[in-house]
Amino acid sequence: MPELHISISAQPIFSIGGFEVTNSMLATMVVTIFLIGLAISGKRYFHLKNKPRWVNFLQTIVESFYEFVAGISPQHAQKFFPLVATIFLFVLLGSWIGLLPGADSIGLTTVHGFVPFLRGATADINTTLALAIFAVVSVQFYGYKHRGVKYFGKFLDFSSPINFFVGVLELISEFSRVISFAFRLFGNIFAGEVLLAVIAFLIPVVASLPFFGLEIFVGFIQALVFATLTLVFINIAVSEHH
């Protein structure tokens, strides 16, 4: 009976100058190159009336997401859109890449055992933590950009002991956002991959198909949740306190 292969960490495939390149980093690069390639190839068609279907599809996705962002933050939609849309697209494809046929089965055997070439990019805590840090730092950046030094006043308020305590809570809440962002995404996507691996191990044919559908949906929802929460936090940061 074959072994069930589950690894909570991303596994190294090769190393460059002492730095190990993991399968989730490889997946990240594949997603990045795919998105950039799509953008560069589509750029010349966007302004045309007759364009290929895939360009229409891409444009529809981007436009729909822009409408979504504009619905939440009408005044700053153009400023926040690149960050929020990139989070959405990256998390979406980073989660879906782990569902590709062969993602868990094509790889190489190393001293650590079998290592698949691709692993869901967001099924690695390093990726989700990096995204969470990027998102929360962006929130602080936009808060400072729109409100100046006054923005940091909510963390350091010496007007009264209660306000000081509230400021400390605000500071803690910013850090907790990083943790909640990172672990929510990692937990959902990793759990999905484990579920698929277990189902495929128990019943190799057909049984895992409904779960694939479920994981596609989970990937979409998680991408939307990550992007929407980032947008909402930025929106709160740039709006004046009352």
Partner: peptide
């Protein structure tokens, strides 16, 4: 790895 992901995401944006 964290740094790689942050830089990668920045370049992607």
């Amino acid at each position: 790895q964290l740094l790689f992901q942050v830089v990668n995401f920045g370049v992607l944006i």
